[in-house]
Design a protein around this nucleic acid. Structure first.
Lengths: 216, 216
DNA sequence: CAATCTTTGTGCACGCGTTCACAAAGACAT
DNA sequence: ATGTCTTTGTGAACGCGTGCACAAAGATTG
């Protein structure tokens, strides 16, 4: 029986072994003292807790470049997600297969959701269409939405929305890049608004540590 | 002069006003007591601290669906990012414009990086090509990499890598969805590995609060 | 100019999460 | 079976971040 100790796992993940054990203990007492954790059993228990052992039918609405990329993305199937349907508002797209799945027209959105028992929807439409699509998804019974459109969606209570902004990660990289470069960078060309009046003692440009407002 | 108070901002963002003021204080003393923060000045200071006032040339490598989606993404330009070049290994792609930018062949990767002073690279290639592309980017002088390929990249010290896994957000939604549904869900069909031996008192399936291992 | 009122900036205390440290559990050797 | 050795599971302490509460600052009014 292949096993791992919390110490090994912690070293591999770069975290504290005690924290790892405490986290595992929330799932139950699956380890064996003096031996460690049975790998296969542990993997199954974590998978189950995370919902990876269930089959989640999802629909992707908006089959542009991004929607097509998502449909082709291999990581979904391996984590229990099944693309139940691809939906697009363009009639010219209807019937055309993307990633082996025929695109269906928006008119059929409601019936697709109901027939497949879909509870998770992915929105990859232009910003302008996102809220409307969102409303229809929710009305048809979807309770979780992954939003790639650059809009804040408003939904009723009980519906979860997660927004993915593809430029945020880039922004974080740029933030660190800026600090790597030090403050040798030339003053930038953008107009600098005048300070409101006073000359604060601490008003001396970026310096010191990473501000708490920035994600790590 | 239009101003905002920390109270107004905190209410809008749904956070504590004291924390917001403390965060702002890391950037310097930009508020005026009795009045609030000068909006224009505050926006500029935050933008500068986050690196939004600089111009960041980036290259996108791998112009498939995802690469094309990124090239077309409007959010980049508005945040100081400029797509300096699109690069693909397929000779058939070379010269073809995507989002108004001609695709260039991988052979030119090094010269593109050097000529444009690119320090941030985006990898949207298949998993198999990612590490090789990464190595070439780093050798050419790139020090920050945004990786959309489903692989863990290894890089020398001093190079930042951020990995974007499009299915992680979906997984988080599924996790919450599972909890919404309660434990009424039928036992799933996957084979359940036998418990190693003992019958633990706490081994009674998911229950209680959200485990600390799960992101919020 | 003095008094008042608003809002910032921050010291301090509280609470939560991480880490330490160890007793209990169980495997394994003798 | 008894003892030793490894590793878990967790109580307790520590440290950090959040939020409270207030003094200081400055605008505004009479």
């Amino acid at each position: 029986m292949p096993t791992v100790s919390s110490e090994e796992l912690a070293a591999a993940a770069g975290v504290n072994s005690a924290k790892l054990r405490k986290d595992f203990s929330y799932l139950g007492s699956y380890g064996t003292r003096g031996v460690g954790y049975d790998v296969e059993y542990l993997v199954y228990q974590i998978s189950r807790e995370l919902g990876l052992t269930q089959d989640w039918p999802v629909v992707i609405v908006g089959i542009g470049n991004l929607g097509a990329a998502l449909a082709n993305y291999g990581g979904f199937a391996s984590r229990g997600f099944r693309v139940a349907a691809l939906i697009d508002a363009d009639p010219a797209m209807a019937g055309r297969p993307v990633a082996g799945i025929p695109v269906q027209h928006t008119d059929e959105l409601e019936s697709i959701i109901r027939d497949n028992g879909v509870s998770i929807g992915v929105i990859a439409t232009p910003a302008g269409a996102a809220q409307q699509v969102c409303d229809r998804l929710v009305a048809a019974g979807v309770t979780s939405i992954l939003n790639f459109a650059p809009t804040v969606l408003s939904v009723p209570d009980g519906v979860d929305v997660r927004k993915v902004d593809l430029s945020i990660e880039l922004q974080i990289l740029a933030f660190h890049e800026q600090r790597k470069a030090g403050e040798e960078a030339a003053a930038d060309t953008a107009a600098v608004p005048a300070a409101p009046r006073k000359q604060s003692a601490t008003d001396q440009g970026p310096d010191g540590d990473v501000p708490a407002v920035m994600p790590a």
